[in-house]
């Protein structure tokens, strides 16, 4: 049952991801991205990571894609056709796909995943909120702080970029 769900969600996600790249219409692409994120959230639910699933939907599907759509609409009201891909895009895409396949294959070969996809009975750390919070503020405190710092820099950058300066003196 769980395997069936996994394959459904996985296929759904991959098809939607391909649609994001392949669809001609930009708005349709954004909507495919939305569905793709919902599919990823579904996979998270199957892994008992409810918090991640909810955050995925809340932050990415709920807000980020809404912003994408907002910007697409601001730039191009019709969500019109985009330009065809360049050759370099095809080449780099191919290389990326090859690398990904290689990675998955090596993972497969090393025997890390021999049982069914969801066969393991290990309770994931992030399953309950309490564990999740504890892990975040003990084991993974450094990454959290680094990410926080990065976000702070990005925020300052946005403020600097969006502010209108009269002359060069104001910047200094």
């Amino acid at each position: 049952m769980a395997d069936l769900f996994f394959y459904t969600f996985a296929t759904f996600t991959v098809v939607c991801a391909a649609a994001v790249v392949g669809l001609k219409n930009t708005v349709a692409s954004a909507l495919a991205l939305l569905l793709c994120l919902v599919g990823v959230a579904g996979v998270f639910i199957l892994l008992d990571a409810f918090l991640l699933a909810a955050l995925m939907v809340f932050v990415y599907a709920g807000a980020v894609v809404a912003l994408f759509l907002f910007i697409i609409m601001l730039l191009d009201a019709q969500g019109g056709d985009r330009k065809p891909f360049k050759k370099t895009a095809y080449v780099s895409g191919g290389i990326a796909f090859a690398l990904l396949t290689l990675g998955v294959l090596s993972f497969w070969k090393s025997g890390a995943q021999t049982t069914g996809v969801l066969g393991s009975s290990i309770v994931p750390v992030g399953a309950t909120l309490k564990n999740y919070g504890e892990q975040l503020f003990t084991t993974y405190l450094l990454p959290v702080q680094i990410v926080g710092f990065l976000l702070l820099i990005a925020m300052l950058g946005v403020i600097v970029l969006s502010k209108k300066f009269e002359g060069l003196e104001d910047i200094k």
């Binding site: 939305l34 409810f50 709920g62």
Partner: peptide, 11 residues
């Protein structure tokens, strides 16, 4: 979960 799903309403 409420926040996540209801935020999809805007689409």
């Amino acid at each position: 979960a409420v926040f996540a799903v209801s935020s999809l309403g805007v689409y």
